[in-house]
C-alpha cells in the first residue's frame, strides 16, 4: 500500500538542507542547491543515525556525521565505507500549491 505523506511546504526547506518526515519508516527529505527535492530512508544503513535531522549535504552527497558514510541522495547508493548497503529511495511530489509529499 502506497502512502502519500506530507513533508513540508517547499519554501520551508532551504536548498542544501534536509529534514526528517516521521512515520514508519521515517523518511529523509533533501533539497539540493538547485532546489530539487529527493527522499531516502532516514536511517543510515551503517548503524543508527537520522540523516534527515543531522547530516551534511554537499550537492547530491549526504554524509552521516557518526562515522562519515556518504550516500548519493538521488539513488541511495553508498559512496564509501562504512556503508555498503544502499538507502531506500522514495518519490517526491511537489503539488501545485507548493506542498511537498513523499510517496512511501
Amino acid at each position: 500500500m502506497q502512502e502519500r505523506r506530507f513533508a513540508c511546504a517547499s519554501d520551508e526547506l532551504e536548498p542544501g538542507t534536509s529534514m526528517t518526515v516521521p512515520g514508519d519508516p521515517p523518511v529523509a527529505v533533501f533539497r539540493n542547491e538547485a532546489g530539487d527535492f529527493f527522499a531516502t530512508a532516514d536511517t543510515c544503513t551503517h548503524e543508527d543515525w537520522s540523516l534527515g535531522t543531522d547530516s551534511d549535504l554537499d550537492d547530491e552527497e549526504v554524509t552521516c556525521p557518526l562515522h562519515m558514510a556518504r550516500f548519493d541522495i538521488r539513488t541511495g547508493k553508498p559512496l564509501c565505507f562504512p556503508a555498503t548497503v544502499a538507502l531506500a529511495t522514495f518519490e517526491v511530489e511537489v503539488a501545485a500549491d507548493g506542498r511537498v509529499y513523499v510517496v512511501v
Binding site: 543531522d54 547530516s55 551534511d56 554537499d58 554524509t63 556525521p65 557518526l66
Partner: peptide
C-alpha cells in the same frame, strides 16, 4: 553537536 562538527569538517 554533530551539526557543528560537520561544519567544522568542511
Amino acid at each position: 553537536d554533530a551539526r557543528t562538527l560537520m561544519r567544522c569538517r568542511k
